[in-house]
Every structure is written in C-alpha cells, then in structure tokens.
C-alpha cells in the first residue's frame, strides 16, 4: 500500500538540496517508526518517490512524497510521530492512502502554483496591468535555457492563471510543471517585466511554491486531494 505525504520546506532548509531531502525523509521514517517497505536485493532501499526537485533557495508549502508501506498506520498517528522527530522547517501536513494503480508523485505533476512576493518599493498597481497584458496575448515566445540547450517556446498556453493582489505586492500564478512542458515562474516574470527586472533588486523578490497539481477528468486538482486519510 502506498501513502502520500504533503510537506512544506521553509526557512533555513531551503538550502538543503533534493537528494538531501530524500535522505532526510529516509532517516525521518526510521526515527518515527513508519513501516516503510524496502526494495529487494543486496542493497535494499526505501520505496520512495518525490515530486520534481524544488530549486535550491525556494520555499514551498506543497511538496509531496509517495512511500510504500508494509502495513497500515493511522494517518493521525503517523503525523504525530513524524512531527515529534522532524525539524520545524519541514512540516508534514498530510499522510494519505493512495488508491491502487495511482500514478506516482513525480509522474503525476502537471501544474504548480507559485506566489511571487515583491518588496514594498517594487510593488504597485502596474502589477495587475502587467498580468492582464500577459493574459491578453495569444502567444509569448521566450528563450528557454537549460544546461545544454537553448530553445524558443511559447509559454502563453502554459500559464493557466496569473493575477496580482489588490496592493500589487503578490503575484500568484498557476503554470505548467512536471516532466512535460515544465516552466519556471522566473520565465513568466521575465516575460512580464523583461529588462525592467534588471533594475530591481532581484534578490529581494521571493518566490514560493504553493502547491502542485495533477489532471483528473481534465481538471487540475491538488496532489493532496488524491487519497484518503487512514482512520
């Protein structure tokens, strides 16, 4: 049986890389006595799968890990035992049994919601205008760079929601994520503000991942909505 954990990663722990987060959970499960299943063979490892790596330095409220159990454990007991031996900067908020034949956390991610929080001196009403302008366009072609390649892509169809709050301090966006058509929130911001951003103190902008979504009946739903509490 497989369960899905939702967790947040905040504070100083934004400097812990993805592999170390995985190691953290392996040790956490052993400390908390979660009955995790191990693979076969000479070097057995915990059967564990995570959502795509969070960039180093970014906070998140919506990370997920799927883990295979050898026996059930009540959700509230598991959450309690995990909280007792976890650092506050990684907080597990749900522990749910997944339905059989459910796609794993990594593969199921199709979209992610981010919040971009601007410092006071950078905020203002033109945030809303910039968001509206972006949404009005039919296509926004940008250059996407990876370690090896550079290619032009149209990100407009990959942005599902984009809006600023009343004060113009926070931009919220729901954008494509996962193994297909993955885009970063910075790509959208850059398309919205372009060169103007270089004048900003970019280091003072905070981007936070809020949640990750999968497709169910053509609708985006939170990964947290799949599965049920074990009671």
């Amino acid at each position: 049986m497989k369960v899905r954990l939702r967790f947040s990663k905040t504070g100083a722990l934004v400097y812990i890389g993805h592999l170390d987060v995985m190691r953290y959970f392996q040790k956490l499960f052993r400390r908390a006595g979660i009955p995790v299943a191990y693979s076969e063979g000479f070097s057995p490892h915990q059967i564990l799968s995570f959502t795509p790596p969070l960039p180093l330095g970014m906070e998140s409220e919506g990370e997920y890990a799927d883990v295979e159990l050898v026996e059930p454990v009540l959700s509230k007991d598991a959450l309690y035992r995990i909280a007792e031996t976890s650092v506050p900067e990684i907080t597990v908020t749900s522990f749910r049994l997944l339905p059989d034949r459910c796609e794993n956390a990594m593969a199921s991610v199709k979209a992610a919601r981010y919040e971009v929080i601007f410092p006071k001196e950078m905020s203002g009403s033109d945030m809303t205008a910039a968001a509206d302008d972006f949404l009005k366009k039919d296509s926004v072609v940008v250059l996407k760079k990876s370690k090896k390649t550079e290619k032009e892509i149209d990100i407009r169809p990959l942005v599902y929601e984009l809006k600023a709050d009343d004060k113009g301090r926070v931009i919220s966006m729901l954008i494509s994520s996962g193994s297909v058509d993955n885009i970063k929130p910075e790509l959208v911001l850059n398309a919205m503000f372009g060169d103007k951003l270089t004048e900003f103190d970019t280091g003072n902008i905070m981007i936070k991942r809020i949640d990750q979504f999968t497709l169910a009946d053509d609708k985006l739903i939170s990964l947290d909505e799949i599965g049920t509490d074990i009671t």
């Binding site: 330095g57 970014m58 940008v142």
Partner: peptide, 13 residues
Amino acid sequence: KTYVNTSFLMLLS
C-alpha cells in the same frame, strides 16, 4: 519576444 535574464533565475526566497 522576451529573453530570459539568467541572473533572474537566481531568485531566492
């Protein structure tokens, strides 16, 4: 047509 400012990818929380 906007190009990615790579230093911007260094955004931090």
